[in-house]
Structure formats: structure tokens, C-alpha cells
Design a protein around this nucleic acid. Structure first.
Lengths: 115, 115
DNA sequence: TTGCCTACCTACTTATGGTAAGTTATAAGC
DNA sequence: GCTTATAACTTACCATAAGTAGGTAGGCAA
């Protein structure tokens, strides 16, 4: 009964799968959520997400930029300042991620238990 | 580089963060989505998710069981059969994950590019 | 007896994440 | 004019998670 299904199901929904693997990567959801409030500079994002390291923030921002969810703006100057904001595609995640937030409020205890 | 800001911001939204780290783990979204269609046996889930290994499926199912998103039912018999289904908490993810699916259909190309 | 089935488990390798320190260019403080 | 500070990274290294391969139990069919 098994090998029969596999091929037909490969395309069950590759877009959904790609989406969830993309926004489900560690810290990605938090980064996007911070940017819902408006464009932020690198160190602002870093400060708003407890636990993330600068290395990983760089990595996640690069991925989100490549996915066209986040846009990057550089202001050349004394210390270079870089601002990150959401694209239309990124802002459109407010619905989905908001739903996840409401689900979490319905079902998860206020004091987070250890994963 | 140290972070001095961290403590003040810890309670931004721990439940949202926990939710996205939980359902965002690799394959978790796919497993839950398969179970939206109804309870399935171990090998059925395995066959429906191309790319996942049995080891990881076991691991994810254990985590989802612990999180009370998935329930496990054993039918003792000739070869032991185990059926996995969603709890109320798990079924309630249909809204959030559906939203993600629709977002993916709006924004991601039909032919998935490699992650 | 040999092999097959389900639902795993164990050992091992590779990829990803976490931690700490270094870089570049400018500017402020002493 | 020399140290120190800042922003946004980069590099190096170690730990954890994911991927791969093979094994296990107990019944059953050939």
C-alpha cells in the first residue's frame, strides 16, 4: 500500500511546505513580527528579540531578503546604518502570523513551559 | 559583544514565540496538515510526507503528543498498529495553517525553488 | 526456514545553531 | 594623536539538531 502513494503526493502542496519551512526557521517568525511595527535597524531588531545572536540575525535577514519578504536600505555615513522593512509580501504575513498568535493565546499557558 | 537590553524585552510575547518555534520545527507543519484529513497510521503519515525519515517522524510525533496537539492510539494485535490523530488544540490549527497555505498560494511560485 | 510486516530504536555523519572574538570606517573624548 | 566607541557585520569554533543506515520484536505467509 505504500510505495503506490508516494509519487502522487509529492506535489500535495509544495508551496505550503516551502512557506512553513521558510517562516518556521528559527527566529524568523520573531524577526517578521518585530518588523510589523515598522522598519527597524539591525541593532533594534537584535534588542527586541531576546536570545537571538547577531550572527543568526544576519543569516535570517539575508534569507528573508532573498525571499523578498524583507527589504534592506543602507544609509552610507559615519557608522553605516542599515534599515530593514517588510515588503508587500512580508506585510501580508500579518494575517497568518496573527492567527498563530491568537491560537497561542487560546491554547498555550501564559507562563511558557519549557519546550 | 554582550547584550544589555535583553531582560526588559523578554515578555514581548512568549506564547507566540513558543507557538512558532513549536509548529515551525522541521516537518511539524507537514505532519499536522496530513492529520487535518483525519487520523492516520505511522506509515501512512510517512508515505504522505516526501523527504521525512522515520526517525524524525517519530521525534516530531512525540513532541506533538507532549504538546497535546496530537493523540496516539495503539491497537494491540498481530502487528501492532498505531494511529495518530489531532486533539481539539491540534484541529484548531486549521485556521492558522490554512492562512499560511493561502499566503503561500498568493506569493510563492507554483514550481518551488530550492530552499 | 526464509522473509515480510509495523512501528519503532541505535549508532553514526552532516548540517544548522550558538558563542565569542575580530573587522572597517568614522567620530568623540582625553 | 591615540585610545575608545559604534554599527553592522564576518570568521572561527563548538554544540545541538537533522539525515542516513541498519537493527529489533513478534506474528504471519510461503
Amino acid at each position: 500500500m505504500e510505495s503506490k502513494h508516494q509519487d502522487e503526493i509529492v506535489q500535495l502542496c509544495p508551496r505550503y511546505h516551502r512557506a512553513i519551512e521558510l517562516i518556521g526557521r528559527r527566529w524568523t517568525g520573531a524577526v517578521i513580527r518585530v518588523l510589523f511595527a515598522g522598519p527597524r535597524r539591525f541593532n533594534e531588531i537584535l534588542a527586541r528579540i531576546p536570545g537571538i545572536s547577531d550572527r543568526l540575525l544576519t543569516e535570517r535577514l539575508r534569507e528573508l531578503e532573498q525571499a523578498e519578504i524583507v527589504s534592506r536600505a543602507v544609509e552610507t555615513g559615519s557608522p553605516v546604518r542599515v534599515t530593514y522593512g517588510l515588503t508587500a509580501m512580508g506585510r501580508d504575513l500579518e494575517g497568518p502570523l496573527g492567527e498563530i498568535g491568537r491560537w497561542a493565546e487560546r491554547w498555550l499557558p501564559a507562563e511558557a513551559t519549557a519546550l
